[in-house]
Design a protein around this nucleic acid. Structure first.
Lengths: 397, 397
DNA sequence: CAGGGTAAGTAAAAAGATTGAACATACCAC
DNA sequence: GTGGTATGTTCAATCTTTTTACTTACCCTG
């Protein structure tokens, strides 16, 4: 994302006009079908101002007028919608399992998506392969005539908060990679904004941003895959991802759940990843790198050793969720990553522990909304695309 | 705090003017001695706009002109400073050990402070006692003629994020208390803004806000006392405290550090508080409620049992710090609370574990700034006062 | 089915904020 | 002392929002 707002905000009249236009656009995006009058009420602006702003946005092709709403006593309002046919967003992800590319509209509707399985490879080779996949997606007829707003790329590791640099991706074997530069060399003519983000942070952002019903005020995404990561997004006006000073926020795989426990590849002992992660399960159950971990385990569920390992991992996952819940208190939790495909053997212990303990503090009975994404293949890529849109609206509109 | 920013920001010309005035005021607050020209450059406004804004702020008594700076080739600029003599901020804290009240200037300079030791009591009785203490502080000659901007109150428990309601303070035995209402009944004529916040969140805010040298972009405050709490504050423009949907963010005392460990009073097992907290140390070492825990332990340091208990607690604290570091990646960490008075027997194991493991992920050698407050008696009260100022500037200026 | 009532959206004048350009001020170096 | 440079102020110009009509459009009532 990298929305620059270090300094204290001050602005001129142009800034104000942009601000108001962004507010209008964001409102219509979040609540499709709003009328000019609705917007004026909610934004505390006059009808005239909103009318003017809407006209510009219509002319620029961001909005379209929809049906006439039924009257509430007087002249009926005209519904406003995002123009979902003019633009396209691109999102991509490099994961341990392969490459994902998605093209979607402003409202997050998928136009086309591609996914290829691929073992981790060097950054430049990967960039070349990803560029090929991106080209294939762009050439799809669904994208015809649409204007590209940009490309977001998600990677499985911490990204510098102020520049598009991947610090480290242990499961890819990458370190200090300027991945967008490599990609730019392959796709010199691809326009729009480009940005790089961590996989879980992008996913978290997308899950919150592409929501038309009640948007939660904050959302935690936990990605359980080869490694464990998370992203927290929240904060009223423009959703903002917590990144931390070095982009390490959310690297929960190395929070300690078991002091003095097993050694982790990071060198410390008892990290969450030693208890619940793809690599820990492989190590514990002897699944080789050439096999698909989830498929293999799903076929070995009746082995007591496997069942027990998944149960233990599930409990650790539940503990991890509980700790995050107490540390961040998000309005909603979404659980994704390849390990969710393991289903109840892993998830039931996790959810049981979490639901049993989440309300210890206040003694309430309200359950925290927790959603599990069964197939999160394109979640991060979609989130990266969402970030492109948010950035564009913030800067342009 | 409760800065209302749920809706998408939009604004009129008044809003813009206020925004720019706030920006000017905040800049001068953070960097005393700035000239109008400096501000114009940094805020990307014209000299004329800044000049106008500064004049209003001078007339309103927020700013004062200072010395003439030395010329950099042309006419020397006039230094601007916060007017530290016109206003006063009040901060108060109800802790397990007693009551604290502080009066300070806009720059955070203490004018007067009072502290009385007191065992936990019922909310209304406590409000009465606190009101008495506040009256004493107000009557102090140092506060003569100063205009009161408001009162911030810090309590040791989660506060509702949208209204001044204390949900629960286990160590005071309070639940669902509208403490400001109780206090208002005792102090009907005390003017300005009143606000309520969690003790650790207020402390975190104050530690970041009342800083004139390089302000870190985010700060984590960990409060180790009878219970364990924390507050994280960050985010460029206006520092914002992470509160969570139910105000539970930062309630790290009940993150699980030892699955299957000791039972906690919350009902769960292995919570951080069972390993490092005032009440856990009392329970483990048989220190009665009538004794001061820290004083008692400082006299019993040579007992192997005590030394070992402090070492274990310290290691748990280190683990807690490490987990927070990996979850939130704050630019700076501040450790406070009554337990810091225990000194090296507790803190050395904590710091050793933290420094040894904080850079496992990236393999860097940079140490995260970590400051320990030896005497944090007034830290939370001061922070609550800081929140009053931030709120006032945000709304008024 | 005509007419009043109500609310949505638009147009033009008025109000208000920032900018731009010119000007006054103040120090320094030669 | 004079020229140079940068700070800070003044005032007309510019731009954006508001204010105040006014038009449009539907519903309900008689």
């Amino acid at each position: 994302m990298t929305i620059t707002s270090n300094q204290h905000q001050a602005g001129d009249l142009h800034f104000l006009k942009r601000l108001n236009r962004s507010a209008i656009l964001e409102m219509v995006r979040r609540t499709p079908g709003m009328t000019r009058a609705d917007i004026a009420t909610r934004a505390q602006l006059t009808k005239a101002t909103v009318g003017g702003g809407v006209q510009t946005l219509l002319k620029q092709g961001w909005l379209v007028e929809g049906e006439l709403l039924k009257s509430s006593g007087g002249r009926p309002g005209r519904a406003l919608h995002l123009n979902d046919h003019r633009h396209v967003l691109l999102g991509a992800e490099v994961s341990v399992h392969g490459l994902q590319v998605i093209a979607c509209t402003l409202s997050g509707k998928t136009l086309h998506q591609r996914h290829i399985r691929m073992a981790p490879d060097a950054p430049d080779t990967t960039a070349e392969a990803l560029a090929g996949l991106i080209r294939e997606v762009i050439d799809h007829p669904e994208l015809n005539e649409r204007q590209l707003l940009g490309l977001g790329v998600a990677l499985p590791g911490p990204i510098a908060p102020d520049r598009p640099l991947l610090h480290l991706a242990p499961n890819l074997g990458w370190r200090d990679v300027w991945f967008l530069d490599l990609l730019r060399a392959e796709l010199p003519d691809l326009g729009g904004r480009w940005l790089l983000d961590n996989e879980a942070k992008a996913a978290a952002f997308g899950e919150l941003y592409f929501r038309t019903d009640k948007t939660p005020e904050s959302l935690l995404y936990v990605s359980a895959s080869t490694g464990i990561g998370s992203g927290i997004v929240g904060g009223g006006h423009w959703p903002l991802v917590t990144r931390g000073t070095h982009g390490l926020a959310g690297e929960i795989g190395h929070t300690v759940l078991q002091p003095g426990g097993l050694y982790c590849h990071c060198g410390n002992r008892g990290c969450a990843e030693t208890l619940v992660s793809g690599w820990a399960l492989r190590a514990a159950l002897g699944v080789g790198e050439e096999e698909d971990l989830v498929d293999t385990l799903l076929h070995r569920l009746q082995e007591p050793e496997v069942a027990m390992a998944l149960k233990r991992a599930g409990e650790a996952l539940g503990t991890l969720l509980l700790n995050l819940h107490h540390t961040l208190d998000p309005a909603e939790i979404v659980l994704g990553g390849s390990l969710t495909r393991l289903g109840t053997p892993l998830l039931t212990p996790a959810l049981e522990y979490f639901t049993a303990n989440q309300n210890r503090l206040l003694g309430t009975t309200q359950q925290r909304p927790l959603r599990i994404i069964d197939d999160s293949t394109f979640t991060a890529a979609r989130g990266a695309a969402a970030e492109v849109l948010a950035n564009t609206i913030h800067a342009t509109a």
